[in-house]
Design a protein around this nucleic acid. Sequence first.
RNA 1: GGCGCCGUAGCCAAGUGGUAAGGCAGAGGUCUGCAAAACCUUUAUUCGGCGGUUCGAAUCCGCCCGGCGCCUCCA
Length: 466
Amino acid sequence: MALRFYNTLSQQVENFTPLDGKTVRMYTCGPTVWNYVHIGNLRTFTSQDILRRWLQYRGYQMMHVMNITDVDDRIIQQSAAAGKSIYEYTAEYEKAFFEDASKVRLQRPEKICRATEHIEDMVRLIQTLEKQGFTYSSEGSIYFRISSFPEYGKLAHLHFEGLKAGARVDSDKYDKDNARDFVLWKARKEGEHFWETPLGPGRPGWHIECSAMAMRYLGETLDIHAGGVDLIFPHHENEVAQSEAATGKPFARFWIHTEHLMVESQTMSKSAGNFYTLRDLFDRGFSPESVRYLLAQVPYRKQLNFTLEGLKAAATAIERLRNYELRLKTTKFAEGKNVKIEERTAQALKSFEEAMDDDLNTAEALGATFEYVRETNTAMDTGEFLAGNVPAALDFLAKFDSIFAVLEPSTVDQTISLAEIEALIAERTQAKKARNFQRADEIRQRLLEHGIVVEDTKEGVRWKRK
RNA sequence: GGCGCCGUAGCCAAGUGGUAAGGCAGAGGUCUGCAAAACCUUUAUUCGGCGGUUCGAAUCCGCCCGGCGCCUCCA
């Protein structure tokens, strides 16, 4: 079966191929850098990371653009409260975002772009819309007239015909013809950051940045546009309207949206305030890999219930995979190659790939992986697994990790050197030979304090980092 | 009111017409000086409830119950 994704636009799973057959041009809505990102944000970014990793696995080149929203109402408000310029204020959170992103092993998009550095692109796009009659001005602000774009609502599948203008929204405080019209350019307000432009002094509306930057770097029609489900309306809907009104071409072929997560079965939102940041979880002793694993294990289109118990389970599951990898790398298997096991390895890889091709079914992909691990562990116990089977097994594991990226431990104790570890282990082996188990256990305990676990196997001692 | 999603073992979760993957936790066992690791056995005759369609349904249809989302800033 071909690679396929659920497309919000069609509400169906569709086969995916990039327009030019080679390079996937993808735009994702990045963070608004007004605060630390929380795990809800990270779920979306992690699912997009899995998406881009899988596209690359399938042989495509990536041209992935992610924006940084560094000017909006909250930023203006918060920076003013902190007595900083918006640039000073957002620099701190942008830096924190990239630190967090790298902790959970998000690949860096090919292009990162800041809204404040693309004001000219936005102005030009607004001018194009003005010339074509899609806009109107009111008190220095410029609005998009949704009644001029008949397909408005096609992404979010909302139908507005029956609704009276202003029926649901308090339109008094806006100088809009229709309450659902949205602002492209906001007139300057006293004390607020503004740009002097041909449109007059002011700042961009929220939606225009994504259209302007996406089209600037990716052209008028993107292969994929992704974000969290809450962005479908109005953000993405408005992007569709303004972009397609300007170009007359489809803005994005695939719209891929990640479901929200819940925390301990409660809804989570910035406004509700019940959210964890990555830093909170590190403080509780959880590793970045555990967070990544937990976020990645539930398919992106399903709500994920984030719990601390789930994080512990994730940590244990990762341990199991690491132990398996260690066993593959350290065991002296009998010579030869078991054909049945080679076939089983190929089959496991195929199951893994088919699961990922199927709209990124990570749960199924993990199932295929663990099933294989259990079966080959058994084969190792019975001696059926031979030295010649190791390369293919390691290859499968490497492929798994090229997507999930959890096998490499991220915390390494630097207070003890390799030489010291080896020396202590040698001493312990001697102590054991002399049946001085007290000394042997003492050494094992001491190493454990450095996060090193010593294991006695049939073939001798081996150690690993916890 | 409109649109959409979900409800599978203690927890997480796959499976969308052919007789319940996987992970974690629990119990027992093998191995071990003790551990660790690994393996084995065990844990849902059943998939929110009630009807219907079918040779056959967790999977399709109807109704009901429960949870969530969007229609307003939000990943």
